[in-house]
Design a protein around this nucleic acid. Structure first.
Length: 801
DNA sequence: AGCACGCCGACT
DNA sequence: GTCGGCGTGCTC
């Protein structure tokens, strides 16, 4: 056991494989698989972080001389075998580097920080450079801190050994540690002879060591629990019988004095669902259940009770929710049921807090983990149940490398742990629902709202008939209902899926539309910040008074965002007290909770927001929901546009009438006959599913075909286009005949952050050559990649912009 | 990624 | 003639 296989933190195609390192004697016995290490890599004395993925003996046929591991970064492993296996599966499945997968599975503080220093050894004649070394011989090396001439001088000095570069790998993850001792004795009989008979403390310590010869013993515990003094321990250190080391300090699992909520009584549908899942938990069966329940049907109670069963079975539960549904309301329900056994991972935690929570889970102190996408990698060791709430939600797909889908990872982990998965939704993804149809998943229906509440009454308002009357935002019907609801003391949720005040500026004289200088997208006006903003790259500039092209004063702003809607509504209904909730008002930490708390306390009667208000909110006094423009998602260049619209409308409608009061929903649209809008108004998922399946079948899209999006981008449009055609030609020549290749085409928003994007869509049912062809593409384009080209391979993309 | 090696153009 | 530009290969 003298060699460790290490995945190094060098994310490239060529280094995407384990490298072998010798384990130096002083690290033997301490190094374990799953630990992070610092290793030398490449020329000079460059050091990088790496993950030990295996320990073994040096293969006989290895002729290369191996380098040695420099140091260990962790006191105990941060990865178990399951997660190491998962990372390699994931890398393969998402066409990404294993190191990227490993790093996304862990809290961000585990990614090392790199820096380097230069030490002056000889003399330098260069004046400016000599100045830098005036105060000290060792200075930090930062490439853009030195001029080009100085850099040249430095590399020259280095060649002549006049300076020395040192590379540092900083570990940002600093768990609390405490002193422990590690046994060094091999022959206990011999040592026993050596110790004087009246040294009682030493004899006691020796016996303790003999009992646990291989594990570190915590000094504090030896002193407190065995009544052995520190001086006896230090004596042993002097004699070389033990070595002092630092080990991670384990938190005391605190017992929370919290009144736990009792399980609620289930209706018969819920009971059937719970029973089915329970059976799978008990039988260690990795079954996938699709729990399809209308909004308000009590899915959460099913989750909570099945989680309880996993715990009763001495196993753990993992519950995933979309980030925006991770509201205090939802978290509260889980915490109140399971108390201190719950770990919550949400975006509001600082990196340090996330690390603490992660360690708690890793130490086995949490039995239930709740979190958004990345929580699927929680280091639970004995999972009995995995839940994906709102399984259709787009946020479950990671939009950059590694482009994994949480659902796939969940199913992989469930298979590993032999436990069931619940995919819950009122509007399942077509893929999941189709799988349930085929019997791959087990379909469980919750067709009724709990307590026999009726679904809210939904009215579709045709805005093409309304536009003349009140500007273009509020229809007469919605205004009347708003007034009525507010006067009755009830509350309203209004959704407008567009941020800002106006979505674009148009010059009436020359037709110029103000665009982002870095992206092919118009700038949105924000009154809050008095700027024109780009929603893609964050560019901001002052709001112009005149057209920047023809200098005409005749400029107008079009398109309505949440800001303008709020302003208009204040004018139209003065008694409306409005809370606005969108990316702009929730940026600050805790702002999200704040807004919802205020709304819950009736400090406002209208909650106006973007799609982030559609999910999970449960306010009993909301009796009216208004969708100001149901069309925003419909014309996106995405084959899931209808699905998204149906989902969004169904979700937001579900916010109305959740207690004993009846709810009403008004959907304003310019496409009153659109099937997604019509069917959402009756919450008819089944019919929508049938209709959408027909269309997907006709257009050869999911779930009938798998999709892969290949995006080629570069700062040079020419390079991107050229390479895109080369890639597409290669694929056309190497994929099977019934695989469909669309493109290359410029992406719908062809330029973002000054990069030009081309994309190719591959649609296939089964293609044996696909994997190899795509890997070939990644391999072959290395040259272009060096010149700034990027190739992103995205299996089952959710975003086409 | 980061470094060395090696091959070509523009300069004291 | 040499210096240094960048294209290419390699890292246990």
């Amino acid at each position: 056991m003298n060699v460790a296989d290490v995945i190094v933190d060098v994310p490239t195609m060529q280094t995407n494989t384990p490298y072998s390192y010798l384990i130096p004697d002083d690290l033997k016995g301490r190094l374990e698989t799953g630990m992070r290490v610092v290793v030398p890599f490449g020329n000079g004395n460059r050091k990088v972080e790496g993950f030990v993925v295996g320990i073994g003996n040096l293969a006989q046929d290895k002729t290369t001389t191996l380098k040695s591991i420099s140091s260990i970064m962790d006191l105990s492993p941060v990865l178990n075998n399951e997660l190491i296996k998962l990372s390699s599966w994931m890398a393969n499945k998402t066409y990404s580097f294993q190191i990227s997968c490993l790093l996304t599975m862990l809290p961000s503080v585990m990614k090392a920080e790199y820096s380097s220093t230069v030490e002056l050894i000889g003399e330098i004649d260069d004046k400016s450079l000599a100045n830098r070394f005036k105060k000290q011989q060792v200075i930090p090396f930062d490439e853009d801190h030195f001029s080009k001439a100085e850099m040249a001088k430095l590399s020259d000095l280095k060649k002549r050994n006049q300076i020395k570069m040192t590379y540092h790998v900083q570990n940002k993850a600093k768990p609390k540690t405490e002193l422990a001792i590690l046994n060094q004795i091999t022959d206990f009989a011999e040592v026993t002879q050596e110790i004087s008979k009246n040294a009682t403390a030493q004899i006691k310590l020796l016996k303790l060591l003999q009992k646990f010869p291989d594990q570190p013993l915590i000094q504090r515990k030896i002193v407190n629990e065995n009544a052995i003094s520190i001086s006896a321990i230090n004596n042993f250190v002097k004699k070389g019988f033990v070595k002092k080391i630092r080990v991670e300090k384990y938190r005391n699992p605190y017992k929370h004095q919290i009144v736990l909520n009792k399980p609620k009584k289930l209706n018969s549908d819920q009971q059937i669902a719970v029973n089915k899942v329970d059976r799978a938990i008990a039988q260690h069966h990795d079954r996938v259940f699709l729990l399809e329940g209308v909004t308000g049907s009590g899915k959460t109670e099913v989750y909570l009770q099945t989680i309880q069963h996993a715990i009763n079975d001495k196993r753990q539960a993992l519950m995933l929710v979309p980030e925006i549904a991770l509201t205090p309301q939802m978290v509260g329900r889980v915490k109140n049921r399971f108390g201190s056994q719950v770990a919550i991972i949400h975006s509001g935690l600082s990196n340090g807090e996330k690390y603490d929570e992660w360690r708690r889970i890793n130490q086995g102190e949490a039995q239930v983990v709740v979190g958004a996408r990345s929580a699927i990698f929680a280091p639970l060791k004995n999972i009995g149940l995995i839940i994906l709430d709102e399984e259709h939600d787009a946020s479950y797909k990671q939009d950059d490398n590694p482009r994994y889908h949480t659902r796939d990872v969940a199913i992989w982990r469930a298979a590993y742990h032999h436990c069931p998965v619940i995919l819950g939704s009122a509007t399942p993804s077509l893929e999941s629902r189709a799988r349930a149809e085929k019997g791959v998943y087990d379909l469980i229906l919750l067709p009724n709202r709990i307590n026999q509440q009726s679904l809210p009454q939904v009215t579709i308002v045709d805005m093409t008939q309304e536009i003349e009357k009140h500007g273009d935002i509020f229809s007469t019907e919605l205004l009347n209902d708003l007034k009525q609801t507010i006067n009755q003391g009830n509350q309203v949720v209004l959704m407008l899926n567009r941020r800002g005040f106006s979505s674009f500026m148009l010059c009436r004289d020359c037709g110029h539309v103000l665009m982002c200088p870095n992206c092919d997208i118009s700038l949105t006006m924000h009154l809050d910040s008095h700027t024109m903003k780009c929603h893609y790259c964050g560019f901001e500039e002052a709001i112009p008074n005149i057209c920047p092209v023809c200098h005409s004063k005749n400029i107008r702003y079009f398109g309505t965002g949440t800001e303008r809607a709020a302003q208009q509504l204040e004018k139209l209904i003065p008694e409306a007290k409005i809370l606005r909730m969108d990316v702009d008002t929730t940026k600050r930490k805790g702002a999200h909770e704040n807004i919802l708390r205020k709304f819950g306390n009736h400090e406002a009667n209208v909650l106006l927001g973007t799609q982030m208000i559609a999910k999970g909110l449960d306010f009993p006094d909301v009796t009216l929901v208004g969708v100001l423009n149901a069309d925003t998602g419909l014309d996106l260049p995405n084959f899931r546009a209808s699905e998204r619209t149906f989902d969004l409308l169904t979700q937001v409608s579900g916010r109305a009438g959740r207690s004993d009061k009846n709810g009403k929903v008004i959907i304003q649209t310019f496409n009153p006959d659109n099937y997604a809008i019509k069917l959402a108004s009756t919450q008819n998922y089944e019919k929508f599913f049938q209709k959408e399946m027909e269309l997907r079948h006709l257009a050869d899209y999911a779930p009938y075909y798998f999709t892969i999006k290949v995006t080629i981008s570069s700062l040079s449009e020419h390079q991107a286009a050229k390479e895109a055609y080369q890639v597409s030609n290669y694929l056309k020549g190497n994929l099977e005949k019934d695989t469909i290749i669309l493109g290359p085409t410029p992406r719908p928003i062809a330029r973002v952050k000054s990069r030009y994007y081309y994309q190719i869509i591959i649609k296939y049912k089964r293609d044996q050559n696909l994997d190899q062809a795509l890997k070939h593409v990644q391999q072959v384009s290395q040259k272009e990649i060096r010149k700034g080209l990027r190739i992103a391979i995205d299996p089952e993309p959710v975003n086409f912009m």
